[in-house]
């Protein structure tokens, strides 16, 4: 049984010109202890699909799916109370902007202990000890002192470590990382990716890595889903995706990597579609705003 299984997920938003499909019939499944990367450019619906799984989209979004199962349990039509018990405990998420996703009014210690209080009902002493242990795991120096810091007193990389500590606080079964390193320097990116991959291997978590960086995909994923304008273009294991991409869009993406440049010019995505900006998707297209 898959850890997370989504069949035919569609997310729509109402706009002045009618319903806009941000995610259009996407099916995704993640096994236990598997690393799935979802790649796509901005506006390809990769984040929206995962926010729909987490139930974090605003009420204006219309979410439909044939099936949305977490460990065989339906998570599409559960009550808010049930969802709150699940999210943050069994499914956790790391967001792109570490500094913006922490609450500036509270110390990071308060924010990590809040998770432990709500989900695990630990007492004050046990919370403190667990928080220090988690800060050690994510490699923050001086954990006792750090617990009393506010987010603005820490660097971007440190804030992202705090975010990871909060996400893994309840040993989730599935971790969704939404562009966890986009806002960070390349040396810090390496540290954070290594950290996430270590924790994933150690805890046997399922991991969904949302990214637009093919380098990050190559370094982390077992399996890859390529999305473009809300549609799934291709799904393959990481080696065959890079060795032998099937969809035209994936071929174009790989050719646009500067390290794959042949001669003086970089191949752009439109070179692959002969002036036609849309790659031919597997199914029929519907009105997607450019």
């Amino acid at each position: 049984m898959a850890l997370l299984q989504i069949d035919n997920l569609t997310v729509q938003f109402e706009t002045a010109t009618g319903w806009f499909k941000a995610v259009d019939g996407v099916s995704i499944s993640v096994e236990k202890a598997e690393v799935l990367a979802i790649v796509g450019e901005s506006g390809s619906g990769k984040s929206v699909a995962m926010l729909a799984v987490m139930g974090l989209l605003p009420w204006t979004a219309k979410i439909t799916a044939d099936r949305m199962l977490f460990e065989g349990r339906d998570i599409q039509n559960i009550s808010a109370t049930e969802r709150r018990a699940l999210i943050g405990k069994d499914i956790a998420m790391i967001f792109q902007e570490p500094v913006a996703s922490l609450n500036p009014c509270f110390t990071v210690g308060f924010q990590i202990e809040e998770v432990l209080r709500v989900h695990l009902r630990l007492d004050k002493k046990a919370r403190r000890a667990r928080a220090i242990d988690l800060f050690c795991q994510v490699g923050l120096p001086n954990p006792e002192e750090r617990l009393n810091s506010f987010p603005h007193q820490m660097s971007g990389g440190q804030c992202q470590r705090v975010m990871i500590a909060i996400a893994i606080a309840c040993s989730p079964k599935l971790l969704i990382a939404d562009e966890p390193t986009t806002a960070l320097d390349v040396t810090i990116q390496k540290q954070i990716l290594d950290l996430i991959m270590d924790l994933q291997a150690k805890n046997g978590m399922g991991l969904i890595m949302i990214t637009h960086d093919m380098g990050v995909v190559a370094e982390t994923a077992d399996r890859v889903v390529v999305q473009y304008k809300g549609k799934k273009m291709e799904e393959a294991d990481v080696l065959s995706l890079f060795e032998n991409p099937r969809s035209n869009y994936t071929k174009a993406l790989l050719a646009a990597l500067p390290e794959n440049a042949t001669g003086d010019r970089l191949t752009t995505v439109s070179d692959f579609f002969d002036g036609n900006p849309e790659p031919a998707p597997s199914a029929g297209t519907n009105g997607v705003n450019a």
Partner: peptide, 25 residues
């Protein structure tokens, strides 16, 4: 050197090496 080592590599050989080491682990 740290900078070079930290840059993710997207070529087929390094992916193969990573998968092999993961399997071994």
């Amino acid at each position: 050197r740290t900078l070079f080592a930290a840059t993710p590599r997207a070529d087929v050989e390094s992916i193969r090496a990573r998968i092999a080491s993961k399997k071994a682990a």
